[in-house]
Nucleic acid binder design. Structure first.
Lengths: 341, 341
DNA sequence: CGATTTCTGATGTACGTAAATCAGAAATTT
DNA sequence: AAATTTCTGATTTACGTACATCAGAAATCG
């Protein structure tokens, strides 16, 4: 059986109350006594039973998710996953609040973060726009001992406790290799469609993609990155224009959201032009496009995993516990038409 | 706040003791009273606090993992993941026992399963060899209300509660498409190396692989499947022989374990022959081979996820609880040299 | 040395559930 | 109607921890 507080008390030759004071860092214990107790804790290998502790405390974890607005499928899916998590709240002792903030809007995000300051919050998860002001706001929360997890897109040089998202440089590199290998030794242009270079995940994907393309597929030339702001309509017109401007385009990498516009543009030129296409985010649109051959591969991050992971990590941090690092690594899913879930 | 047993008692106009009898299916409650209580439970939406219940019961979950012996890296990794789980036992209230059984040995597996019959076991996870005798033994356990989860390889038509592993047909199909696309329009032979056609996962991979190859890459011809019994030495000699027998081999699909033998055989012919290679299971050997270009893609199942998922599912079944299906779906990981973890 | 101040022990209640005991009520049998 | 059996209620203890209170011991101060 696992040792309990009673065992510590017996081992250290003190009372339960003193053990409790040491464990919960309450005042009223002499240094020598405290050390005696701590030694006993280590020696018998006591670990607090979090379930029992939470029961006694009536603990609930008030978490806040800050998500960008926008009607693209990915963010819609993310919101829906957070919503699903709220349905499990009573079991998991969480109380999840969703705060929506305009996409790519730095000051709105900062305001939302700062609004959390005084509140009783056990953790914050946010889709970060990578700006110094946001970093500063996050650091303020961290310094108030509030666990902060970035979701989907990370924040450079901030003190956030954890990032629940994929390695976007690796994603870009992987896209490049898939595209390069699928195109065999062919020569031609590649067009890249991003959402916004303001978010770190998109910048990193471009960076990884360009690096591998330059190093390993010199016969494929990258055209300037198009910014579709994750907006289907804008994406459509940008891609259509690009395709008619250059007849040498043989490959497309879409690394943001708003792919339903991209797919429409591709279908418009489809029988005539042969294009190899890699896109991000598995949605109903990209799934259909993968099935019908409009798209050759879909890179995906599982929003459900990201949300559940963020919650687990925030809980662990709030309790000062460690996490199973391996379990919290968010993986880059590669979908071909054969391994769709 | 969540409703408690006290709320049920009040709502149903009965005592705590009666509520307890209904909840835990103890005798001594008249049918009408029982129905009244059950109605109250539904009406106020009571859900048992499993943490508190486990605390009160002093519940521990004695689980058994039945794993095949064998010194290939994959099984080694699997054992090590189960071992890691034992280290978390005290937190998770589990008591994990590992039973080793010779690989591909039906009667030994059946004996191990039957040995569990009378024992106090909260769940069994096994790497199944797909045979009717094994299925029958599993069904016997299931009929004794013991949760059974197949791990890595599933069991046809059995009543096991859950399968913690990848979709192997999809894995084979994916391998075929990767190999086919990477080979561009080239023509030639493909050799397939399996462990044993006695295990369902390997059979299914071959099936998926062959189907896609036949349907979509008619210029690639499949040679007869080699059976390396997941043994590095055997794999090496089989592949070496095949490579020298046919000069037309331009692709290799290795769907079992024992890849360090395969890799040695490949390296032996490496500078002269150009081969596109897809293998299963990320180990130190396949990882190195992917990095140095001997292998083009690695398909992987995350043993850690499988083990943790199996434990979560066995727990849930033991408690009569539901699982988050999406969270328990084991994914096929596709690794190129760019997205290695 | 006595008077504080600071520490420590003893004890009790609580969290939500499980499980046991015993007395009394209701139903069933004789 | 009495005797029995079957149900139900009331109450208690326990799980491991948190937290509060109060009394008494030890240390520190004047």
């Amino acid at each position: 059986m696992r040792p309990t507080v009673h065992d510590i008390a017996a081992a250290a030759g003190v009372s339960l109350a003193t053990v409790d004071r040491v464990l919960n860092q309450r005042p009223g214990v002499r240094l020598v006594t405290r050390e005696k107790v701590e030694a006993a804790i280590r020696q018998i290998g006591y670990v607090r039973d979090v379930a029992a502790a939470n029961l006694a405390k009536g603990r609930v974890y008030p978490f806040v998710f800050i998500l960008p607005t926008g009607d693209n499928s990915f963010m819609h899916g993310l919101r829906s996953e957070v919503h699903h998590a709220t349905l499990r709240s009573s079991f998991e002792r969480t109380e999840i609040r969703i705060v929506e903030v305009p996409a790519f809007d730095v000051s709105a995000l900062v305001a939302a973060l700062d609004a959390l300051q005084g509140q009783d919050i056990a953790g914050v998860a946010l889709v970060a726009t990578d700006a110094p002001e946001v970093r500063a706001a996050v650091d303020r929360l961290v310094s108030k001992r509030i666990p902060v997890v970035t979701l989907v897109s990370d924040l450079t040089d901030s003190t956030r406790h954890h990032y629940a998202g994929i390695d976007n440089i690796a994603a870009g590199r992987t896209a490049a290799r898939l595209l390069g290998r699928f195109l065999g030794g062919h020569e031609g242009d590649i067009t890249v469609l991003a959402g916004s270079m303001l978010v770190r995940d998109h910048r990193e994907r471009v960076e990884g993609f360009s690096a591998v393309m330059a190093a390993e597929f010199p016969r494929l030339r990258l055209l300037p990155v198009l910014e579709g702001r994750d907006d289907p309509e804008l994406a459509r017109s940008l891609v259509s224009k690009a395709l008619s401007a250059s007849k040498d385009i043989i490959g497309v990498y879409s690394l943001g959201a708003g792919n339903r516009g991209l797919i429409a543009a591709l279908k418009a030129v489809r029988p005539k032009r042969e294009l190899t296409v890699v896109v991000h985010e598995l949605t109903q649109h990209t799934r259909a496009a993968l099935m019908d051959g409009t798209v050759d591969a879909v890179l995906n991050q599982d929003a459900g995993h990201e949300v559940r992971s963020a919650i687990r990590v925030m809980k662990a941090k709030a309790d000062g516990q460690s996490v199973i690092a391996d379990q919290e690594r968010i993986r880059l899913d590669i979908f071909l038409k054969d391994n769709l879930p």
